[in-house]
């Protein structure tokens, strides 16, 4: 088992971050070409707590290192199941994700949390992933598979942050522009 973890503080309010989180993989993000589809499987609002629960299916397409193909096959499309919980009273977004593809060989379990920062206009990001190779056999092979997965995971995480920063910046600019237009009309 390997653990990957990352932390970051965004210079945007929790409201902006949690809204834009839904379009993290839109064309504004030029760093997430490996995400080719994001589908909503279900969505429900709990009226007593105000919590919004969303199930999504994330479709990724990314070439595998050639030595890994002997374990995983040549299919380079993978699916991720994600359930997120937005608590607007607590100002938190929690996203729990697991891999659907290759799940008999590898388990990748990820937690992402966005919580309001200590000062206004800031949002904390916490990410943890637990990576476990499940195939029987030599520990050495399992280790290599886990290491390759962590490596890929951390590269995607870094790109993900960069891409999301861009989405946040463009969104803020678009919103400001919209306000200017409305003032001109009024």
């Amino acid at each position: 088992m390997k653990i990957f973890s990352a932390r970051h503080e965004y210079n945007y309010s929790w409201e902006e971050v949690s809204t834009n989180n839904w379009r993290k993989y839109c064309p504004w993000n030029d760093k997430a070409e490996h995400v080719i589809g994001v589908d909503v499987l279900s969505r429900s609002l709990d009226k007593s707590t105000g919590i919004l629960r969303t199930e999504r299916l994330i479709t990724c397409k990314q070439a595998l290192p050639s030595w890994l193909k002997s374990f995983f096959g040549s299919n380079d499309t993978s699916l991720v199941y994600e359930v997120s919980y937005v608590n607007p009273r607590e100002k938190s977004v929690t996203m729990c994700s697991q891999n659907l593809t290759w799940s008999e060989l590898l388990s990748v379990q990820e937690t992402v949390r966005y919580t309001a920062g200590n000062s206004p206009g800031k949002t904390n990001f916490d990410q943890t992933a637990k990576i476990i190779a499940l195939c029987g056999g030599w520990q050495k092979i399992k280790n290599s598979i886990e290491e390759a997965t962590v490596d890929r995971f951390s590269k995607n995480a870094a790109k993900g942050r960069e891409g999301f920063e861009r989405v946040l910046a463009i969104s803020r600019e678009a919103f400001a522009e919209q306000c200017r237009q409305q003032k001109l009309v009024a």
Binding site: I3, D46, T49, E90, C96
Partner: peptide, 24 residues
């Protein structure tokens, strides 16, 4: 996570391998 105030980490029942080593 559907509780009004929640913990900080997602948990799953399956797929724990007791032999695994922990490397951060």
């Amino acid at each position: 996570f559907m509780k009004p105030s929640s913990g900080a980490k997602c948990k799953y029942n399956s797929q724990e391998d007791p032999r695994s080593q922990l490397i951060s």
